[in-house]
Amino acid sequence: MKRLKITNDHGWTPRTLRKQERKIKNTLLRQRVMAVRLVMEGYLGKDVASMVNVCRQTVSHYVSLFNEGGLELLLHRDFAPG
């Protein structure tokens, strides 16, 4: 299994992500930041998935969002109307 990689082009560290986690009120958004932080700390995607109670593909999606646009894209939420 290939390890998930964080491209740290955005300047975030595990410590700064943890501080950001504490500020986020919405639990689903906090879960996204926590998943990325755990991957950044070296945990495998499947282990992170069980820690934050999502599937491995979801963790991979969170990491790709973070790599593409940093925390701003990771926390951006689009909802279907209705």
Rank of each mutant, 00 (worst) to 15 (best):
K5W: 13
I6Q: 00
I6F: 00
D9A: 11
D9L: 11
H10L: 07
H10A: 08
H10V: 07
G11V: 10
G11S: 09
G11T: 08
W12K: 01
T13G: 15
T13D: 15
T13H: 08
P14K: 02
T16M: 12
L17T: 13
R18Y: 13
R18G: 10
R18L: 14
R18S: 14
K19V: 09
E21W: 12
R22S: 06
K23F: 01
N26C: 07
N26F: 03
T27K: 09
T27E: 09
T27F: 08
L28S: 15
L28R: 12
L29S: 14
L29H: 05
L29W: 02
R30A: 10
Q31G: 10
Q31A: 15
R32N: 09
V33E: 04
M34C: 11
V36L: 14
V36P: 04
V36Q: 05
V36K: 08
R37I: 03
L38S: 03
L38H: 03
V39A: 01
V39D: 01
M40F: 13
E41D: 15
G42M: 04
G42N: 10
Y43M: 03
Y43S: 01
L44W: 04
L44A: 09
L44S: 12
G45W: 01
V48W: 02
S50G: 11
M51E: 13
M51Y: 15
M51V: 04
N53V: 02
N53Y: 11
N53G: 02
N53T: 04
V54H: 00
V54W: 01
V54L: 00
C55Y: 01
R56I: 07
R56S: 07
Q57V: 05
Q57P: 03
T58P: 00
T58V: 02
V59M: 08
V59N: 05
V59D: 03
S60T: 02
S60I: 00
H61W: 06
H61K: 15
Y62F: 15
Y62E: 03
Y62W: 08
Y62D: 04
Y62V: 12
V63M: 03
S64C: 05
S64V: 04
N67V: 11
G69S: 06
L71H: 05
L71W: 10
L71F: 09
L73I: 11
L73Y: 14
L73D: 14
L73W: 08
L75W: 01
L75I: 06
H76M: 12
H76I: 05
R77P: 00
R77S: 12
F79A: 10
F79H: 15
A80C: 12
A80M: 10
